[in-house]
Amino acid sequence: MTTGNCYILKFDSKQEIALETKQLKIFYDEYEAISAADLQIPRFKITALIGASGSGKSTFLRSLNRMNDGIASVQGQIWYRDLDLNSREIDVYAMRRQIGMVFQRPNPFPKSIYENITFALERHGITDKKELDERVETALRQAALWDEVKDKLNKSALALSGGQAQRLCIARAIALKPDILLLDEPASALDPISTAQLEETLINLKQQYTIVIVTHNLPQAARISDYTAHFSQGVVVEFNGTTETFTQPKIALTNEYVSGDFG
């Protein structure tokens, strides 16, 4: 353990990188929410972003698929497939199809379960009924929701329980077959049983998707993630394998945070 400022893991060429930020700075008016973050997000892994409230981890996550457009000003680069996502020539709608997001509170649309999933598909030009049916079933299976809802696909999604609704939101995102799934504290509004189901779902999903998850729940980060980034006051102070971060943190701040001495 050192008392140095930061420790950021850099991957060697064996690990594919899905997304990489370079000198990413985020401002709300004058206030700097994130200062110069350099982070590599490994492909087909779960990366957890942890840190105290207000540390900037959610702001960071929301900037990755430009959900902060018009809310915060983002400087620096976000590299994805040799493209800087934080530049003008990017079509944000096509980009978000590849980099989906699920939020803290489940937000199913006031439509049927089936339409919740097909709505975005149709907007992106998939209108073939057979393909839609197939995608709905696959997505719901992957989100571990199929067995619970297969008989009521035409019922309103608003009648689902919190855990089911959240898994529907995940299904709706993965039905688009994205590259990357960004999750902003997806389990914080759920009960323990739903949380466990959700975690299992995520672990299964990482074979096909790169997942970045913001969580307040440290045991959750430890259980499901492969890599963990610790944010503190707008700075990524440590990024390393999850086991290393939790058992032998290299930075004192992280040690305090993961051992519970922090605030």
Binding site: R96, R97, R105, N107, F109, K111, F119, R123, A173
Partner: peptide, 20 residues
């Protein structure tokens, strides 16, 4: 939350508003 839901799926704000 509904607006975010639409935007995060790559749907335009216009369609999110008019259709949801």
């Amino acid at each position: 939350d509904q607006r975010n839901g639409g935007l995060a799926l790559g749907i335009s704000k216009w369609e999110t508003v008019t259709k949801i």
